[in-house]
């Protein structure tokens, strides 16, 4: 005998953990990152001239640790937004579930793949 609550295991945990990881990462470091890349670096406040130079940025993206940081930040931030947008669009009954998933999780998956491809293309 099973109650009404017993149904198949959901795959939501995958998306939920990615959402949670992105949420935590952005909550801990998001404001700091935005201050650095959005204000201090472009305005040259407290940072040397060459901070945003092509060579400097390239060196960062060629460094394995830099690569990992870029991948983790960009991918997880997208997965975080994707989960929240998906659930809200579902609340709004904005469309069939599959379409909403493609527009949210799908975008996050494509961006993740693209980041990996670009980081590989940039080389070591």
């Amino acid at each position: 005998m099973t109650g009404p609550a017993r149904d198949n295991r959901s795959i939501s945990p995958i998306f939920w953990l990615l959402f949670g990881a992105g949420g935590m990462l952005s909550a801990l470091f998001g404001p700091g990152l935005i201050l650095i890349t959005g204000f201090f670096a472009p305005l040259g406040v407290g940072l040397p001239e060459n901070f945003l130079s092509y060579d400097h940025a390239l060196a960062f993206a060629q460094n394995p640790v830099g690569k990992l940081a870029v991948l983790v930040v960009v991918a997880l931030f997208f997965w975080h937004g994707a989960e929240r947008l998906f659930l809200t669009l579902k609340d709004m009954k904005a469309g069939p579930s599959l379409l909403l998933k493609l527009c949210t999780y799908g975008v996050a998956a494509v961006v993740t793949a693209a980041v990996i491809a670009l980081l590989l293309a940039i080389g070591f």
Binding site: Y54, V70, V73, F77, G81, L85, T88, L118
Partner: peptide
């Protein structure tokens, strides 16, 4: 609650700004 969920879009939006940077760099 809906507004709170929408703040997740800003997180992804900032991710998009960084992604644009990575693309430009490449």
């Amino acid at each position: 609650y809906t507004v709170r969920e929408m703040s997740g879009l800003a997180v992804a939006g900032y991710g998009a700004v960084l992604f644009a940077g990575l693309y430009s760099l490449s």
